[in-house]
Design a protein around this nucleic acid. Sequence first.
DNA 1: ACAGAAACGAGAGCACTGCTCTTGCGTTGC
DNA 2: GCAACGCAAGAGCAGTGCTCTCGTTTCTGT
Lengths: 239, 239
Amino acid sequence: MLSFLYTGLMNAPRTARERARAELTKEILTSARRQLGDVGAPGLSLRSVARDLGMASSAVYRYFASRDELLTALLVESYGEIGDAAIAGDLPDAAPEERWLSVWRAVRAWCLANRHEYALLFGTPVPGYAAPHLTTEIAARMPLTLARIVADAKRSVGLRPYTGPVCDPAAIEPAMLDLLADGDFTVEETARLILAWNRLVAVIGYELHGHLKNVTADDALFFEYTARAEGANLGLAFD
Amino acid sequence: MLSFLYTGLMNAPRTARERARAELTKEILTSARRQLGDVGAPGLSLRSVARDLGMASSAVYRYFASRDELLTALLVESYGEIGDAAIAGDLPDAAPEERWLSVWRAVRAWCLANRHEYALLFGTPVPGYAAPHLTTEIAARMPLTLARIVADAKRSVGLRPYTGPVCDPAAIEPAMLDLLADGDFTVEETARLILAWNRLVAVIGYELHGHLKNVTADDALFFEYTARAEGANLGLAFD
DNA sequence: ACAGAAACGAGAGCACTGCTCTTGCGTTGC
DNA sequence: GCAACGCAAGAGCAGTGCTCTCGTTTCTGT
């Protein structure tokens, strides 16, 4: 499972064969990625990838054991990209509120430009599921970018006091608190961070899947409101 | 498109042939629904439905023009069910807060028991999209149940004043305000209703798709917190 | 340097899919 | 009664994921 990451991509190729293998692996991924963007995950066909590269369909199985494994590779790649987009959207020297909005916008922009990749990441899981241990680290980069901003805000200007119901500590996984340990978050802050990350993904999903048709008139404007509301909910200084 | 709704199901069958047609249509739907629950939408095969009913695969096309149309029928059916579940979960005589929690729990219970149907409703849209005009009315029943509770609370005990950023009226579709007209909602209330409905669906989706693995320790408890927090955000009296 | 081992690409083939077209039977309505 | 229509079945097309075999190429250990 996921052997391609180790054999072809991560280790530096030494022999000519390994070199060719790494290159072809990359070409397969590139072609698959392009097809994913065109027809989406359900329409992605291993045979058409093979045709695109001028090789026999059976030869592709030397590089990816199944269609699901190929999709998983695209999933990992996409997780990396959305994490990159989030990090690139951050403005480390700006005020927390500006950083927050900028990251939200960056993530939305990536999702709108890569709707099939969004579906792969957050839509209905098509394959038998990706390897959790490998992907969670990459998948965490986007939400951690949000957490970092809140942590910085807490350290510098502080967070506004919370109102409303509080979260039962038993609801949160202790490992999650450890993951955010450097932010020194309370249970309540952690819960609200989870909800903010959930909201970011969800409101984009609604926009992408057409659930906001006849509901919102200006999706960008509504997204802006959502970002502010969710930031304020975490104690950022949005009015 | 969607002709099955008119030919087979809604009009009372008069001749024996129409009677048989209506019955077979229902049997196809039942078998398809069972298969949907087993293997999910991507695995649902028209041929296996035909095998299940002991008929030729080509005969099914007399009743549903395509696999997508069959899926659309299941989509409509599921929208109806989740709406029913929401309405059945409401407690018209209870306090708004109790009603709110009860509906949230009822919707979650339905989704957990019908995860493939959830995927069909809120996951990645597989087919070429359902007919909007027919489905929106059915699809609105669940969110309207939430809206009704808030409207009743506003009329009786009133909603708590809002804090935080406000929503630009230009973001909301005027038709949406009309749809909620009997609730006499402001733009801000409407926006928060949309977000609450979005949250309900989204947090269940996270739970179903495994995104809360290693994040929450007790999904039911976290859901309870989410329901309260989202209700409080709308001005319901959760502490 | 050479032989054995491992990796590789191509092709055929299996079981399956959605969907179409034709054929013939049965029912319906004039 | 008969023409017209509804219907089920079968064959067939193009496509899919995946497996197996069969030569060929490349690498590696002696």
